[in-house]
Design a protein around this nucleic acid. Structure first.
Lengths: 130, 130
DNA sequence: CCGCATCCATCGGGATACTG
DNA sequence: CAGTATCCCGATGGATGCGG
């Protein structure tokens, strides 16, 4: 039994993915992973791709992803220095595992537009009562 | 083209799911959704199921999930008051869409144990340099 | 070019007490 | 029972400047 939600049928418990969901929900992780889908990229290429990300945040994001085994960091001892980031096998498999979620989101957006004429979700979450 | 990560092939871009991933990554969302998988539950039943969650946090979590259309809130005008929460169709479909992710996590945990004798990920992320 | 160091604002979430 | 009100803390991420 999962001790976090006390669900009996552990095979169907969602709690095990809390860890990875914490990771992929970091603000820029999705964008970085998507940027690396095709080819290895260098730090500043990723930065330019995404645009508004600050260097510290990109740095942290890349470290987390490397630590999780989702991307690889390859250093080439050149001057000027050259560092390339690429997806690992695990990272590619993660993207595949996320496809059904992408499709679910797209379906939901379509329903929203059909019923209400606008996208209703995903903006304005409930905020803490301050 | 996705403007967030500038990825050309929008069909494969992960950015669209950032919204829902933000939601499901809230600390207790997975546990709540799992708790509701079988039957409708009342506020304090969910609370007791999960155990350590604070009332404010559970309240906010439920509001967010309701706002996202993933759960339904049913009030029965009784004394003492009775409020039941249940999954909507959309909520059930979300859980189904997450199954590949659950399986990916399980595979990854198995690999970790085979190679290192322990679970290596999901603890100690890199923290901000303070 | 690839970052790290520092400062700062914001936010999610815990603990606890209280109310309709 | 089903929440709200209040206070508090740690973590995240933006902006900017510096270093190898």
């Amino acid at each position: 039994m999962c001790k976090e939600s006390n669900c009996e049928k552990e095979a169907f418990c969602l709690c095990p993915i809390r860890g990875i969901v914490d990771v992929v929900s970091k603000k820029w992780v999705m964008c970085v992973l998507t940027s690396l889908r095709e080819d290895p990229l260098r730090y500043n290429q990723i930065k330019k791709n995404i645009g508004e990300i600050s260097p510290k945040t990109l740095s942290n994001t890349l470290k987390t992803l490397e630590h999780e085994g989702l991307i690889e960091r390859n250093v080439y001892g050149e001057t000027p220095p050259r560092v390339e980031y690429s997806l690992t096998e695990s990272g590619k498999e993660l993207q595949i595992a996320l496809i059904p979620l992408v499709e679910w989101v797209r379906r939901r957006e379509n329903h929203d537009e059909l019923h209400t004429g606008q996208k209703s979700h995903k903006k304005n979450q409930i905020k803490n009562s301050t």
